[in-house]
């Protein structure tokens, strides 16, 4: 169809009742809930991107996350550390930030807020 390498701009990794995960412009985009049902799809997408450096996870459309969802993010963060890289959480909602602060795990990630500002560590 095209000559040479042709990166698709958006690719759907999968969807179920809880979540839809796509990879768009090099970032993992999650829409919906990251819970026991949603986590595995997120894991798959993260592993897809991992080889290429920092993993950006766009959480703009994430409605809900619990500790099992957080586990997916923390695992990814640990692996990123292992290759001297980082997991970036883009646009986490107040609910996501709340979970990060309850669990004291905000500093495991790089947080990129909607206005483009970066902050390591969450709020409390």
């Amino acid at each position: 169809m095209s000559e040479g390498e042709h990166k698709k701009s958006m690719e759907e990794i999968g969807r179920n009742e809880s979540i839809r995960v796509t990879i768009d412009k090099g970032a993992v985009v999650a829409e919906g809930d990251i819970d026991l049902a949603g986590g595995p799809l997120l894991d798959t997408a993260i592993m897809r991107l991992e080889a290429s450096g920092p993993v950006v996870i766009d959480l703009t459309a994430v409605e809900f996350i619990d500790s099992s969802g957080l586990r997916s993010l923390l695992t990814a963060s640990r692996r990123a550390e292992g290759r001297n890289s980082v997991v970036v959480l883009r646009n986490p909602s107040a609910g996501v930030k709340r979970l990060l602060s309850i669990t004291g795990t905000a500093d495991q990630f790089q947080i990129e807020d909607g206005d483009g500002s970066l902050a390591a560590g969450g709020e409390k």
Partner: peptide
């Protein structure tokens, strides 16, 4: 006891 049921509970 299915993962998809967690959301139903919520």
């Amino acid at each position: 006891p299915l993962p998809s049921m967690v959301r139903v509970g919520r």
